[in-house]
Design a binder for these strands. Structure first.
Lengths: 354, 354
DNA sequence: GTGAAAGCGCTAACAT
DNA sequence: ATGTTAGCGCTTTCAC
């Protein structure tokens, strides 16, 4: 039977046999030059004649050569990959941050490696470790829930750019949370609300700006603060946390939520109890996400300009990569209160002047 | 001045000087063993005494050693990284797919590398190429907009698992789109609608199942199909595309949209024109995303179980990695129509029986 | 303009 | 149980 070519079996379809990847070696052999020249050509390094360069690109094309960025980084000794850590893919804010960072790296040669937290309430350390194992040269983190000291320690291992969070001595690109929260609370106070609750999630160092500002603003005007804590930063947890608040006595006439996610949860809880927004309950979120702009949702919200935050973070990362020893960047931007239909005067005020 | 220690300058805070990464070599030297043993210990390979192993882990901990997964993969010759391509981070479906895949790889040692399309309407090739340069051993793609032939060709270079799409001869994990679309359209027909439009985005090979099924179902019952095409798969584009449809004469009484994203755009367009859902316009989406469940949105939608799709895709990738030569997987699941408040009988039927 | 050779951090035979 | 050695694909001196 030797020499007989077996007939092509029809059989079930099979995925293409993964052929061995084409290397610079293969390209060099094809062209008849040394590996070095192929490497030079692909990095645009000087010292390759135009003729040779073209022959190399040609052969590479034909053979389907793709550079092995991983091996290149290893050899270069200076990683070109950028790690981007995102806390929650289900929260639009992080998609915005991603797109901002991506834009900033549009023309840069760096690879962007994403790492996403398993839950919206995880410390980032494990996910960031996977970035470190992938040997990224810098980590852009949106948002680390870890303690300041842990972030500072992490920054000893790999440069970190914090997004939407400020950590002393570590690059930080963030929005003025206290100002945003104050604007939100003052808006409610001006509408005549006195029973204003704050809906937040588990406390984490560096994420207390909105809550603290709420408490401060309330006590400044002599109003008693009332904080409700959801088990995590999801709509579902918010719903669970708000139901007892609204079902109990002395229920608030307004809720200022840590973000839109939680605000939407509060909204669902309200409607579930037969309360209407804003007639029975005024609601303010944070993030000015797309959902807040929908007809029928119409949620008053504080915009922290996540896309722009991402862009700044990307640019900051680029600078840090270029200049590792420059002083830490501290970039604070201003949020903006966007008033929509979810906030109105409380029932008692409306009754007073009908 | 020699020998004089300069005083510690207060100055601005600086990010920690990035120290050289700790290697197995360093750990080995610290413990007083060979590099090999350190490697063995970390891979859990047999042939290391418990005593030595503990000493190694100890030293690694002290020194802050993190394994260089990139170098390991290179040496192993068999990449352990898994690439996950996502078409659109702003669409919740892809977040669900991500979490499904992540779950499937929970206990696997593989790194997950994400790559996201720059826009919701890009072909995936560029983003997948970056995955190839990062030397992933397999690509899980949700969802490639490229032509079947291009996907098949890509699969020659690196194994591909298609999510929510079927490509002959390439692993595919998908939902029965024609069945889902038919259920949606039949639901509208049963309510009494006759002017039912379909809202979709740019046509791409392999993404025509819903549209074709809509057309087929309509003509099966002798109704004229009417397809509106948005410029891309975003809410905003949908809004722009639907306005002329609803403002013109003979406007439809129902719209079946390719997905919730587009359905929400249609909804905004309707309300912008003073039309109410479902009173003036019935609306069906696809994906059963969180937004469709909100009070006041209450969108009837077809659920394709994205999370489960992601899990299946992850498991399929695991199997493909273990058995590169097995026949291509073709996994079709059944979607489910979830009826909510955005669909009702059309105005003329309601008038007939008041 | 071109090539040889060392080495990046690691794995995996193959010794001992 | 432990060590030696040869790569993985690439970059980067340094020589010709």
């Amino acid at each position: 039977m030797r020499g007989v070519t077996p007939p092509a079996l029809p059989g079930p379809p099979r995925p293409g046999t993964p052929r061995r990847a084409v290397t610079q070696e293969d390209v060099a052999r094809e062209v008849g030059v040394s590996r070095t020249l192929v490497s030079f050509a692909f990095r645009g390094a000087p010292g390759v004649s135009n003729e040779t360069r073209e022959a190399i690109f040609d052969a590479a094309q034909r053979l389907g050569y793709r550079q092995n960025a991983v091996a290149a980084d290893l050899a270069r000794k200076r990683p070109s990959a950028v790690g981007l850590y995102l806390l929650d893919l289900r929260n639009e804010v992080y998609a915005d941050v991603f797109h901002g960072v991506r834009e900033a790296f549009e023309d840069a040669p760096n690879r962007l490696i994403l790492s996403v937290s398993p839950t919206a309430n995880s410390l980032g350390r494990a996910a960031v470790d996977s970035l470190i194992e992938a040997r990224v040269g810098i980590v852009v983190a949106a948002t680390l829930l870890d303690a300041d000291a842990d972030v500072q320690e992490l920054a000893q291992t790999v440069p970190v750019v914090n997004v939407a969070r400020r950590v002393h001595g570590v690059d930080s690109v963030y929005s003025d949370d206290p100002a945003g929260a104050e604007a939100a609370v003052r808006h409610l106070i001006e509408l005549g609300h006195t029973r204003i609750a704050h809906l937040t999630g588990p406390p984490h160092e560096g994420h207390q700006g909105r809550r603290r500002s709420y408490e401060r603003t309330m006590s400044d005007v002599g109003l008693p603060p009332r904080v409700v804590t959801a088990q995590d930063y999801t709509q579902e947890a918010a719903e669970r946390a708000v139901v007892p608040l609204l079902a109990g006595g002395e229920r608030p006439t307004a809720i200022f939520a840590h973000n839109d996610e939680l605000a939407v949860g509060a909204r669902e809880a309200a409607y579930g109890l037969g309360l209407a927004v804003p007639d029975d309950l005024s609601l303010i979120g944070y993030d000015n996400s797309r959902i807040s702009r929908l007809h029928g949702i119409d949620l008053t919200s504080v915009d922290l300009h996540a896309l722009e935050l991402g862009r700044s973070a990307g640019r900051t990362a680029l600078e840090r990569l270029a200049n590792p020893l420059a002083p830490a960047v501290d970039l604070k931007s201003s949020p903006r209160l966007v008033v929509r239909g979810s906030t109105a005067a409380p029932p008692e005020v409306r009754k007073d002047r009908p």
